[in-house]
């Protein structure tokens, strides 16, 4: 028995392309909303109302706002998203001369955060209030970081904390510590396993893609708003596909069928359900339980993309998916090895 290959066909690529088109088209739509007079609408997210409240409370109490952009390994899209929200928080804090602290787990995030926070103070005309130590690198070890941030929350008696980004097991340590000093907490984790902990310990939680919607709502930039609407279109498509899948799998196919390659006609080369009969010449003959035909490597969409002209392909073993390729000239036996991943 050779290897069995999973083939999603062209649908995966087409679906990704569709999502990209939705996002780009809606960004274009939002950018041109002024010309067409059709504003793109997005609804209010309750967790975001809490941001102004939390910063206002911190100002009244004269205590700092602590922000943590998760525990990423490098600057990724999630960190950028978290920093977008933090720049909004910092802007309000800068207006009210409220102290802030951004705690970073990763050195590259630290440098990006430092630049972004300084830019916000500069834009607000309050660069003299910018404290270079308000953005800190704590540690790049998970629990050393948790201990460091918990210590800061306790020592500084934070009035508000924002935990937005990728959090793991330390999420509850941070949230419960902040809860113990009575801080208002707004949190969101892109790790589903941590969201329940935040829900249990924090005042407001942005669940799932609300995290990505936050900066669009707060800044109202056409690019962000358009992108958000594109995301919603994509979600509607996903829901439609789920419903279609539900429908198709709910309809029972009568009799035993197998996936067979179509030999002729417009669908030539694709796979289709066919009934398996004991006597193929007699359509009324009983169906049999034969061994299912396995999809080989040569049948997969990816393989066909790689080999648009399959006439030169010679297999060692088609079922096992091993085939012949031209070889590098072996000039030096010591250097001939290497290359393949």
């Amino acid at each position: 028995m050779g290897a069995q290959y999973l083939d999603t066909g062209w649908i995966a690529e087409a679906f990704t392309a569709m999502l990209v088109l939705f996002v780009l088209f809606n960004i274009w739509r939002a950018e041109n909303a002024g010309k067409t007079g059709k504003e793109v609408y997005i609804r209010r997210i309750p967790g975001l109302n809490a941001i102004d409240e939390a910063v206002g409370r911190a100002t009244e109490m004269g205590r700092p706002v602590i922000m943590v952009p998760g525990l990423p390994d490098y600057v990724d899209a999630i960190v950028v998203q978290a920093m977008n929200i933090f720049t909004y928080v910092t802007r309000i804090a800068a207006r009210f001369s409220n102290p802030i602290l951004v705690c970073c787990y990763n050195a590259s995030v630290f440098t990006v955060a430092q630049e972004m926070i300084r830019d916000v103070y500069q834009q607000e005309g309050a660069i003299e209030r910018y404290d270079q130590d308000s953005v800190r690198f704590i540690s790049d070890r998970q629990f050393a970081f948790a201990a460091g941030v918990s210590g800061l929350i306790l020592r500084e008696q934070a009035a508000a904390t924002f935990f937005l980004g990728n959090f793991y097991a330390e999420s509850l340590i941070l949230a419960e510590t902040a809860n113990s000093v009575g801080a208002i907490q707004v949190a969101s984790s892109t790790q589903n396993t941590q969201t329940p902990f935040f829900i249990a310990a924090c005042d407001y939680v942005l669940i799932g893609d609300e995290f990505y919607a936050a900066s669009a709502y707060l800044t109202r930039q056409p690019v962000l708003v358009g992108s958000l609407v594109g995301q919603d279109w994509a979600k509607i498509s996903v829901i439609t596909m789920v419903l279609l899948g539900l429908l198709t799998t709910s309809i029972q196919i009568q009799g035993k069928t197998e996936m067979e390659k179509v030999a002729s006609g417009p669908s030539k080369g694709t796979f289709a359900h066919v009934q398996v009969l004991s006597n193929p010449a007699d359509p009324k003959s009983p169906m049999v339980d034969g061994p299912p035909r396995q999809m080989t490597v040569a049948d997969t969409f990816m393989y066909r993309m790689l080999n648009p002209l399959p006439r030169d392909i010679k297999f060692h073993d088609e079922k096992a998916g091993t085939f012949e390729r031209p070889q590098k000239p072996a000039t030096n036996p010591a250097t001939a090895a290497g290359g393949g991943q």
Partner: peptide, 28 residues
């Protein structure tokens, strides 16, 4: 959880696209 995952995945894709094409105006 799968529903939330879909939302996060699509959000990440849109965010990645904005960053890749330099459409994102961070900090403004």
């Amino acid at each position: 959880i799968r529903g939330i995952d879909f939302g996060i995945g699509i959000g990440s894709l849109a965010m990645g696209l904005r960053l890749w094409l330099s459409l994102e105006r961070t900090g403004s």
